[in-house]
Design a binder for these strands. Sequence first.
DNA 1: TTAACAGATGCAAATATATGAATATTTAGT
DNA 2: ACTAAATATTCATATATTTGCATCTGTTAA
Lengths: 100, 100
Amino acid sequence: MLNIQEIDADRLEMAASMLKAIAHPMRIAILKHLEGGKKLTVTEIHELLGIEQSTTSHHLGILKDKGVLCSRREGKNTYYYLKHDILSQIVDCLQRCTCE
Amino acid sequence: MLNIQEIDADRLEMAASMLKAIAHPMRIAILKHLEGGKKLTVTEIHELLGIEQSTTSHHLGILKDKGVLCSRREGKNTYYYLKHDILSQIVDCLQRCTCE
DNA sequence: TTAACAGATGCAAATATATGAATATTTAGT
DNA sequence: ACTAAATATTCATATATTTGCATCTGTTAA
């Protein structure tokens, strides 16, 4: 039996953890590369960003775990892509707000 | 002498720190209360959210420091308000993405 | 079945964040 | 000047996050 406040607290938690997942320079960079429905492998991302393979995998895992990304395995590769296209909005909004 | 990558890295850092400021359940709750140009005092927020005065002040300080909120002192009170109305977009977007 | 590639995971050290009690600062009223 | 109200700051503790090395798992091709 949940009351309104508990539901609200849960949704706040969920929203916060999703946002926390995004709130990292490398993870924002990942999202930028995935805008427009693009799908990239771990290796592609790790080379694009110039960071370690395992670090890349950790970041992607966090984004997937928090519902920001999805992944599909194809042979040896795992392709990652945005779960909700709308999320690009957040990146765009940030871009506008950090323009000054 | 900055090159493109450094500028980009700086903007990513800035975007991430702004987003990190927002990515906390209580701070998202604060933003919700400030949507539509509303201005609230520290005490009002601390009572609305049911958290300690000093904790509230910390949260507001973080949001202000990272460019999410502005504040204006009026007598004994300090009113806090959104710096960019656009930021409501982020909260709205989260709301849509955490609906499932 | 082995080798080689792609990705995930466990772990530890460094760093960052969150919270609240106590205290300091600022302002208004008397 | 004194007091009380509103807010900010300091500090300590608890907790979470980041990073990369080393290693493990899964997949393909020989």
